[in-house]
Design a protein around this nucleic acid. Structure first.
Length: 886
RNA sequence: GGGCCGGUGGUCUAGCGGUUAGGACGCCGCGCUUACAACGCGGAGAUCGACGGUUCGAAUCCGUCCCGGCCCA
C-alpha cells in the first residue's frame, strides 16, 4: 500500500510561500469582469504609505480574508480591492523627520524637491507594505490595485471638489482653525488630541483706565496673548462685575485701553469670572468679538510658526517663541505688579496628532466643507438598518458624532497632497473652481491665473475610496458590477475620519450607501495589556511573526481565543495556542493518510444508516452541528465564535474522541465493511473540516486537502460545506454521550485511586435503565479499550453489585473498579456524596418555596423535581454501594 | 464635564433571568496508547468588583458607588 505521506513536522514557511505563489499565478482571487449571481465586495482600507503595516492591519486583513474566502467558496463573485493611501500630512511629517536627520529642513526646500523626496519614500514603503499583505496570504485582487494619488484619484478628487464648490457646500472663510505651528498648517478638529496637562493660571490685574485704584482681575493660562486683547468680558448676570461694565481697563504691558463688555459666553465659574478677549487666538473670544462689532479689529500677534509678531506687540517681546514669551511675559507682569496670584491647575490641552505640538487656535483663511448638509441620508440609513454597524454598540457613538458635525477644514499648508483646484484671476481677482486648469478668466478674459497654494486633507480623497477605487469618475464596468460594496472592516479609530465620511460621500456622489455593513475590530494589546505602539516597541513587525510562526498561526491567533471585536492581548502565548492547533490538524491528517491510500475515492458523504457504527453516526452529526454554528457565527460577524466552534470540534470531538474510538474500525479489526465505512467517514469529516477552516487558515488547509484524496484544483475555490446536507443524528449524539460518560467515569476512577497507567483493572457497570444497558453492551469493547480496563462485566441487577469501594454513580449508571480499596477511592466517594448532598439540599429548598411552585413556569418546576429525584437516586445508590442505609 | 465599553479561578475569556458557572493558558499528578510531549488522561483552583433593589429565582435586569480602558468637549 502506497500511502501519501506528510513530513512529520509542519513547516509553514515553505508551504505558505508555495500556495501564495500558486494562488497568485492562477489568479484565483481576480474577480470576474462580468460577474453572475450574488456578489461580495470588500474595500481594503488603503494603508498609509507613511509606515509599515502593524499587527492591527493584519487583524483587519484576517477578518476581511475570512469573509472574502468564505463568500468566494459559497460561489459568490468576490472582489477584495487593495490600495494605498498617500497620507499627505502624515507622510510629509515622516519625510521631514528623515530629512532633519540629514540636517535638511523640509521648509527650506522648493516644492518640487519636497515632492521628489516624498516619491522616494513612497516607493520604498509601498514595496514593504505589499510584501506584508502577500505574506499574510490575503486574497486581494492585485489586478485592481489603486493608489489615492494616481491619475484617477486626482480626477475624482478634483471633480468632487468642484461639484461641492458649485453646490455651495465648499467655501473659503476666515475662521479660528487648529493651527500646528510646527508643521505650519491648519489641521481638522479630528486631528487634534486633547489631554489633561498642568498649567499656571495667572490672576492678572487690568487697572482701571480712569486711574481709579484697583482694577479687574482676569485669570489666564496664556498671558503671552495679552497683546492681542481687545476687551475684557464678564457674564451679564454676574453681580461681582456689574459695576465694571462699560468701564475701560488698561491692558498690562501695553497701556492700551479696552472696554469691559458683557457676554453670556463667559464661564462665571472659571477664575474670577472675567475673560480677556483675544479674538484672533481663541475660538470663544472670536465668537464674542463677532457679537461685539464695536470692538477693535486686531492684527495677528502670533506668526504661523508661533512667534510673537505685529504692531500690537511691544518691541521687547516681538519675535519671541510662544513658550519663551509665556515665561517672559509672566515675569514682566509680576515685575509690574499686575499678578495678584498664581494657581497651578490641570486643564485640557490640544495637541496636533502628527507633530504633537500644542495646537494654536488661529484666525486663518481656509477651505471648509459643510458636512452637516451631507449627513441626513447617512443618519437615516444607519437608523433604518440599510447600513448595519457591528458590533452594534457603536451606533450610539456614531450618531452622537454625526449629530454634532462641525464644518470640515480641508485645506492644508503643506506640499504633499492633492492641489486645491481653485484659480484666481491675477487681473480681476475672480475665483473659480475647475476640474482642469482654465485657460483664461471667464469674467475679464485675462490670461494670468494663479492656483490656490494649498493642498487638500488626505481624507478628502480617502472618503471617495469605495467608488474611486472601482474607477469613478469613469462609469466603469467594475463600478456598475461591484458598487455598492458589501462590508467595510476597519478599526474604530477611524470611525469619524473615514467611515462616516465615506458614507456621506457615497450618498452625495453615488446616491447610495458605499457598503451595507461596517465591522469594527478591537485594538490589539500586548500580553501585559498595554496598547501596542511603536513607542513602546511592543508592536512586532507582522513579517517577523509570519517568519517565526507562519501566517496561518498569526491569523488564527488573531481570531481566537480573544474576541476580535474587543481590545485584547496578543503575543507569544496566543501564537503558541494557534500553532498547537495547526499542528494538531496536521497530525490528524497524518494519522488519517495511511487509511486513505492513493486511488481512494474523493470525499463524499458516507452512506450512514441507523445500523452504522455509533461513532460514525455521532461524528458526522457533530460535524453538522459545528458547520451550522460556523455559518451562523460568520453571518453575524462573530469570528471568534466560528473559530472556537471549529477548534472545539477538531480537537475535542474529532481527535480526542472520534479518532480514538474509530481506530479499531479503521484498522480493519472490526471487519472490512466497518473499515470501509470508518474510512469514508473520516475522509468526509476531514474534507469538510478543511473547507470550513480554509477561510481562516488557508495555507495549511490547502496543503492538507491536496494530501488527501480530493476533487478539484484548489481548496480556495472549492465549495463551502453545506451544513444542511450533513446527516444529523440526535439519537446518536445522546447515545455517544452515554458511552463517553462511562469512559470518562472509569478514567476518573483510575486516576482517583492511583491505578498505574499500564494496569488494566477489571471493572463492572450497572446501567441505570434498559437503554443504557443495550448501549453499553454494544459498545463494551470501546469502553474497555479507551478506559484501559481488563474484563468489563455488565451487571444484571442491583443485587450483583460488587463490594468494591472504587466506584462512582452518574445519571447513566454505577461504575466499579474491581480492585482492593485504597484511601483515595474512599475519599473520592465521600467527596462526591458531600457535593451531591449540598446540591440536593439547595434544590429541595427551591422546591419547598411556595412562591416557586406558584410563579415559576411548570416546565421549570418539573425539571427541578426531576433533578431532585435524580439526585436522591444517585445518593441512595452511592450509599447502597458503600453499604450504608440511605 | 458628557458618553461608551469592561470588571467571572493566577492570567485571558464564554455565559447575559432557572446551568452542578464552561473553555484556553499557567499550575499539580500520572504517562499506558496504531497521528500528535507543540501530546494524552486526570486534578486542584471562582462567595461572577461593592452595596442596595426588582423577581418565586440574579453572574445575568435596575439603581448607586468603586476600579480599569477608550471616545467626545
Amino acid at each position: 500500500m502506497t500511502a501519501p505521506t506528510l513530513p512529520s513536522r509542519f513547516d509553514p514557511a515553505e508551504i505558505e510561500a508555495r500556495w501564495q505563489r500558486h494562488w497568485e499565478a492562477q489568479r484565483c482571487f481576480q474577480a470576474p469582469e462580468r460577474p453572475q449571481g450574488p456578489r461580495f465586495v470588500l474595500p481594503h482600507p488603503p494603508p498609509n504609505v507613511t509606515g509599515v503595516l502593524t499587527l492591527g492591519h493584519m487583524l483587519g486583513d484576517t477578518v476581511r480574508d475570512t469573509l472574502a474566502r468564505w463568500h468566494r467558496m459559497r460561489g459568490e463573485a468576490t472582489l477584495w480591492f487593495p490600495g494605498l493611501d498617500h497620507a499627505g500630512l502624515a507622510t510629509q511629517v515622516e519625510v521631514r523627520r528623515r530629512l532633519q536627520k540629514q540636517g535638511i529642513r523640509l521648509e527650506d526646500l522648493p516644492r518640487e524637491q519636497v515632492l521628489a523626496h516624498v516619491e522616494a519614500w513612497k516607493r520604498e514603503h509601498e514595496a514593504r507594505i505589499l510584501e506584508q499583505i502577500r505574506a499574510g496570504g490575503f486574497s486581494v485582487d492585485w489586478s485592481r490595485y489603486r493608489y489615492t494619488m494616481d491619475d484617477g484619484a486626482v480626477r475624482a478628487t478634483r471633480k468632487v471638489f468642484v461639484e461641492l464648490y458649485e453646490r455651495g457646500l465648499i467655501y473659503r472663510g476666515e475662521r479660528i482653525v487648529n493651527w500646528d505651528p510646527r508643521l505650519r498648517t491648519a489641521v481638522s478638529d479630528l486631528e487634534v488630541e486633547h489631554a489633561e496637562e498642568p498649567a499656571d493660571l495667572l490672576y492678572v490685574r487690568y487697572p482701571w483706565a480712569d486711574g481709579a485704584p484697583g482694577g479687574l482681575l482676569v485669570a489666564t493660562v496664556r498671558p503671552e496673548t495679552v497683546f492681542g486683547d481687545v476687551a475684557v468680558a464678564v457674564h451679564p448676570e454676574d453681580p461681582r462685575h456689574r459695576e465694571a461694565l462699560g468701564r475701560q481697563v488698561l491692558v498690562p504691558l501695553t497701556g492700551r485701553s479696552v472696554p469691559v463688555i458683557a457676554d453670556p459666553g463667559v464661564d462665571r465659574e472659571f477664575g474670577n469670572g472675567a475673560l480677556k478677549v483675544t479674538p484672533r487666538h481663541d475660538p470663544l473670544d472670536f465668537e464674542i468679538a463677532r457679537r461685539h462689532p464695536e470692538l477693535a479689529q486686531p492684527p495677528s500677534i502670533l506668526s504661523d510658526d508661533g512667534h510673537l509678531e505685529g504692531d500690537w506687540v511691544p518691541s521687547p517681546y516681538r519675535g519671541l517663541d510662544r513658550d519663551e514669551a509665556r515665561v517672559t511675559v509672566s515675569e514682566a507682569l509680576r515685575a509690574g505688579g499686575f499678578v495678584d496670584r498664581t494657581e497651578r491647575i490641570v486643564h485640557s490641552v490640544g495637541r496636533s496628532e502628527r507633530s504633537k505640538a500644542v495646537i494654536e487656535p488661529r484666525l486663518s483663511r481656509q477651505w471648509f466643507v459643510k458636512v452637516r448638509e451631507l449627513a441626513p441620508p447617512v443618519v437615516a440609513a444607519v437608523r433604518a438598518g440599510t447600513i448595519r454597524i457591528h458590533p452594534p454598540r457603536w451606533d450610539l457613538t456614531f450618531f452622537r458624532w454625526m449629530e454634532a458635525l462641525q464644518d470640515w477644514c480641508i485645506s492644508r499648508q503643506v506640499a504633499w497632497g492633492h492641489a486645491i483646484p481653485v484659480y484666481y484671476c491675477a487681473a480681476c481677482a475672480h475665483e473659480m473652481a475647475a476640474e482642469s486648469p482654465p485657460v483664461g478668466c471667464p469674467k475679464c478674459g485675462a490670461s494670468r491665473l494663479t492656483q490656490d497654494p494649498d493642498v487638500l486633507d488626505t481624507w478628502f480623497t480617502s472618503w471617495l475610496w469605495p467608488f474611486l477605487a472601482l474607477g469613478w469618475p469613469e462609469e466603469t464596468s467594475d463600478l456598475a458590477h461591484y458598487y455598492p460594496t458589501s462590508v467595510l472592516v476597519t478599526g474604530r479609530d477611524i470611525m469619524f475620519f473615514w467611515v462616516a465620511r465615506m458614507m456621506m460621500a457615497g450618498f452625495a456622489f453615488r446616491g447610495a450607501a458605499p457598503f451595507s455593513d461596517v465591522y469594527f475590530t478591537g485594538m490589539l494589546r500586548d500580553e501585559q495589556g498595554r496598547r501596542m505602539s511603536k513607542h513602546l516597541g511592543n508592536s512586532p513587525d507582522p513579517l517577523d511573526v509570519v517568519r517565526n510562526r507562519g501566517a496561518d498561526a498569526m491569523r488564527f491567533a488573531l481570531l481566537f481565543p480573544n474576541p476580535v471585536d474587543q481590545d485584547g492581548p496578543f503575543g507569544e502565548g496566543t501564537l503558541d495556542g494557534a500553532r498547537n492547533f495547526l499542528t494538531k490538524l496536521w497530525n490528524l491528517v497524518r494519522f488519517a493518510l495511511p487509511y486513505l491510500p492513493e486511488g481512494s475515492s474523493p470525499a463524499a458523504p458516507p452512506p450512514l444508516t441507523t445500523g452504522s457504527s455509533l461513532e460514525d453516526r455521532w461524528v458526522v452529526s457533530a460535524l453538522g452541528r459545528t458547520l451550522e454554528q460556523v455559518d451562523a457565527s460568520l453571518s453575524a460577524f462573530e469570528f471568534t465564535k466560528a473559530a472556537g466552534a471549529l477548534y472545539e470540534f477538531l480537537w475535542h470531538d474529532l481527535a480526542d474522541r472520534y479518532v480514538e474510538v474509530a481506530k479499531e474500525a479503521l484498522s480493519g479489526q472490526r471487519g472490512e465493511a466497518a473499515s470501509r465505512e470508518a474510512r469514508a467517514t473520516l475522509l468526509f469529516v476531514l474534507d469538510q473540516l478543511l473547507r470550513a477552516l480554509h477561510p481562516m487558515v488557508p495555507h495549511v488547509t490547502e496543503e492538507l486537502w491536496h494530501a488527501l484524496p480530493h476533487e478539484g484544483e484548489t481548496l480556495a475555490l472549492a465549495a463551502w460545506p453545506r451544513a444542511s446536507e450533513v446527516r444529523r443524528d440526535p439519537e446518536a449524539e445522546v447515545a455517544f454521550e452515554v458511552v463517553w460518560d462511562a469512559i470518562r467515569t472509569f478514567r476518573n476512577l483510575r486516576a482517583e485511586s492511583k491505578v498505574p497507567a499500564g494496569e488494566r483493572p477489571d471493572a463492572a457497570v450497572l446501567p441505570t435503565g434498559a437503554e443504557e444497558r443495550g448501549l453499553l453492551e454494544r459498545e463494551l469493547a470501546t469502553v474497555r479499550r479507551l478506559a484501559r480496563l481488563g474484563e468489563l462485566c455488565l451487571l444484571g441487577s442491583a443485587a450483583e453489585r460488587p463490594p468494591s469501594p472504587t466506584r462512582s454513580v452518574t445519571a447513566h449508571g454505577e461504575f466499579f473498579l474491581l480492585r482492593p480499596a485504597t484511601v483515595e477511592s474512599g475519599e473520592a466517594v465521600e467527596r462526591e456524596r458531600e457535593r451531591l448532598t449540598a446540591l440536593l439540599e439547595r434544590t429541595r429548598a427551591r422546591l419547598a418555596d411556595p412562591g416557586f411552585r406558584a410563579r415559576a413556569p411548570p416546565e421549570v418546576v418539573a425539571e427541578t423535581e426531576a433533578k431532585v429525584r435524580d439526585l436522591e437516586d444517585r445518593l441512595r445508590r452511592l450509599a447502597d454501594t458503600v453499604g450504608e442505609a440511605p
